[in-house]
């Protein structure tokens, strides 16, 4: 069996479809998996709620209201449940609004890596030959850049816009998806799955869309998507440290941690800790959701 030489997140390139679905429910899902997915779904739910609250401006306080008399107030003062930031703005409201910064751009990044990744993966896996060589070169090329440096170059060249950042992130995520799908197709081909499908007279389009992508790759794609969101948040945070993340006055968790961290050493922990915890719980949620889903859908009994 040929193995993909690259690590594609944790996605199995050699995953197999088992008779897993015939197991009774209580054996199917282990308790940790259910907890993981439960927690992950809770976080996803909270993120969605925050997104809606932010989009309709249903916030406890005006997130842009500057209060020069109340800079970096501790939690609980003056009706600010989570305190205020370096401009006296309400941290709680900004945290809720901050999810806006990631939601659509993050989805864009995921969409780019999945759509291009799927096309390239199918081309490389199904067609093989010349296409495969070119695609392998491309994926290797993208993988050869330190991602942060590449993004820094791009935003310096264009502008520090979260959509640009996420577009580059999406492109750097393409190789992972492409290689995973190509690997999966190779495994299926090895098991004469595709030959059988062709022998049955199925059209290529149906084989690819329905039998390969839908039946065999959906778990992989869902997991890739959940992980993408977490990565988007962390990446924006790193860029914020360098000054190139989402720009004020638009709140993002990353620029909140960054601006708060300037006062960290003076003992003002809260303004950076609040958004850092938000990042922590959210990414944990996405990671665990991905983990749990992987265990359930792919039938891996790892614990």
């Amino acid at each position: 069996m040929r193995r993909s030489t690259r690590v594609k997140k944790y996605i199995q390139t050699s995953g197999e479809v088992s008779d897993f679905s015939k197991l009774p429910l209580h054996k199917k899902f282990s308790i940790p998996d259910l907890l993981y997915v439960g927690y992950g779904l809770l976080i996803v739910f909270l993120v969605l709620v925050s997104y809606v609250l932010g989009a309709f401006n249903l916030l406890p306080n005006d997130p842009q209201q500057i209060n020069m008399d109340m800079l970096m107030a501790p939690p609980g003062t003056g009706g600010h449940l989570l305190g205020t930031d370096f401009m006296g703005r309400d941290i709680q409201s900004r945290l809720i609004l901050g999810i806006q910064a990631y939601f659509l751009p993050g989805l864009l990044a995921i969409f780019i890596s999945l759509s291009i990744g799927i096309v390239l993966g199918v081309l490389a896996g199904y067609r093989g030959g010349y296409a495969e060589t070119v695609i392998t070169y491309f994926t290797n090329l993208v993988d050869s850049f330190p991602r942060l440096v590449l993004i820094l170059l791009v935003i310096a060249a264009f502008k520090p816009d979260i959509y640009y950042i996420m577009m580059v992130m999406g492109i750097t995520g393409v190789p992972a998806v492409a290689n995973a799908i190509a690997g999966k197709i190779r495994v299926l081909a090895q098991k004469n799955f595709i030959e059988a499908a062709i022998a049955l007279g199925l059209r290529t389009r149906v084989i690819i869309l329905k039998h390969i992508l839908w039946y065999n790759c959906r778990a992989l794609l869902i997991i890739q998507a959940t992980l993408g969101m977490g990565e988007a948040i962390l990446l924006e945070t790193s860029l914020s440290y360098l000054g190139f993340g989402v720009q004020e006055p638009t709140p993002s968790w990353g620029n909140m941690v960054q601006s708060g961290a300037n006062y960290f050493m003076q003992g003002n922990f809260w303004p950076s800790t609040a958004p850092a915890l938000a990042i922590l719980f959210t990414i944990l949620g996405f990671n665990l959701l991905g983990d749990g889903l992987n265990n359930m859908l792919e039938g891996k009994r790892s614990r």
């Binding site: 020069m68 401009m87 440290y241 190139f244 720009q247 004020e248 300037n262």
Partner: peptide, 15 residues
């Protein structure tokens, strides 16, 4: 202009 650790600038501008 963006600068690393330019939060004083950010503050003035936002104010």
């Amino acid at each position: 202009p963006i600068e690393k650790e330019s939060e004083a600038v950010k503050r003035v501008v936002l104010a």
